[in-house]
C-alpha cells in the first residue's frame, strides 16, 4: 500500500521542481499504475494537474506532448497518427487495455526509463527531445543514458521530419509485457533501429542503423542488417525469455520492421 503524507498541486513547473528537491521524500505522481503497486511512503506527493501538461499540440515543425498525456491519447490522436506511419499508436496499442491506457501517462513512463517500455522504444526511433524542469531540453537518448537525478519531466518534443517508421513487438499472450520490441525509422539516408525489452531498456543498434541508411534494401541486405543489430546489442534473460532467444527474435523483428519501412518508401 503506498501512502501519501501531504499533497501539493503547484501552479508552476518551477514550484514543482523546488518542492521535489527540497523535500527528501517527495515524489511526482504520474498515472499511478506502477506507483500503487509498491509500498512507498511518499511524504509529499506532487500532482502536476494544474500545470496544463495533458495533451498533444501540433506545431509547425514538431509535436509537443505534455507529461500528463495518457497512452490512450497517443493511440487515438488523429493528427499525430498521420505522422510516422502511426508509429506511436502501434507501440502503445498492445499495452493491457483501453482503461489502462487511459490511466498511464507519457511523462511517468519516460521518466522511469522502464526496460519493458514499448513507448520508449518507439520514441527513440523518432527525433524526440525530453524537456525537464531543471535539466532543460535534451535528446531522449541523452536523457535515457544519464544517471537518475531528481527532476520534473514536463514535455516531449517530437520533430515532424517526415520520417517513415515501423514498430514490431513480440509477446506471448497479447496483453503481456513484450519479450522484445523494435522500432525502425528511415529519413533521407538516416536510419535508426531501436531494440527494447531486451529486457534492458531500449537502445539504438548503432551499426545496424548506419547500414540501414546506406543503400538500397533488398531481402539479403535486410537480413544482414537484422543480423548486425542482433549481434551488436546485449540481451538479458527474465521470466519471459532467455538472452539467446531474444537475440534470435531481434533478427526477426528487425527484419520485419525494416521490410515495412522499406515498403513505405
Amino acid at each position: 500500500m503506498f501512502t501519501v503524507g501531504q499533497l501539493v498541486q503547484p501552479d508552476t513547473v518551477e514550484e514543482a521542481y523546488r518542492i521535489l528537491t527540497e523535500k527528501k521524500d517527495a515524489a511526482v505522481l504520474g498515472g499511478c499504475a506502477f506507483l500503487r503497486m509498491g509500498s512507498r511512503a511518499i511524504g509529499t506527493a506532487i500532482d502536476l494537474s494544474h500545470l496544463n501538461l495533458e495533451g498533444i499540440t501540433e506545431h509547425a515543425d514538431s509535436f509537443e506532448i505534455g507529461a500528463m498525456t495518457t497512452f490512450r491519447m497517443l493511440e487515438t490522436d488523429s493528427v499525430l497518427n498521420t505522422f510516422f506511419d502511426g508509429l506511436l499508436a502501434e507501440a502503445v496499442k498492445p499495452i493491457i487495455g483501453v482503461q489502462f491506457r487511459h490511466a498511464v501517462t507519457v511523462g511517468a513512463t519516460v521518466f522511469s526509463k522502464y526496460g519493458f517500455s514499448d513507448l520508449i522504444t518507439a520514441l527513440q526511433a523518432l527525433d524526440t527531445e525530453v524537456e525537464l524542469a531543471h535539466g532543460g531540453r535534451m535528446a531522449l537518448e541523452a536523457f535515457l543514458n544519464r544517471p537518475y537525478e531528481k527532476d520534473v519531466l514536463t514535455r516531449l518534443w517530437i520533430r515532424k521530419d517526415g520520417r517513415r517508421a515501423a514498430y514490431q513487438s513480440f509477446r506471448n499472450s497479447a496483453s503481456d509485457f513484450p519479450i522484445l520490441t523494435t522500432a525502425v525509422s528511415l529519413l533521407a539516408g538516416q536510419g535508426r533501429i531501436v531494440v527494447g525489452a531486451r529486457p534492458l531498456k531500449a537502445a539504438i543498434a548503432v551499426q545496424a542503423s548506419q547500414e540501414l541508411g546506406r543503400m538500397d534494401l533488398n531481402s539479403q541486405r535486410m537480413d544482414e542488417i537484422a543480423a548486425l543489430a542482433a549481434g551488436e546489442m546485449t540481451f538479458g534473460a527474465n521470466m519471459r525469455g532467455s538472452a539467446e532467444y531474444r537475440r534470435e527474435l531481434c533478427k526477426v523483428l528487425v527484419k520485419r520492421a525494416v521490410t515495412e519501412v522499406a515498403a513505405c518508401k
Binding site: M37, N172, S173, A174, S175, D176, F177, M239
Partner: peptide
C-alpha cells in the same frame, strides 16, 4: 504473483 506476471488468456489470445 500478479496478472502482470501470470498471464491468463485475454480476449485476443
Amino acid at each position: 504473483n500478479s496478472f502482470m506476471q501470470y498471464k491468463i488468456p485475454c480476449r485476443k489470445d
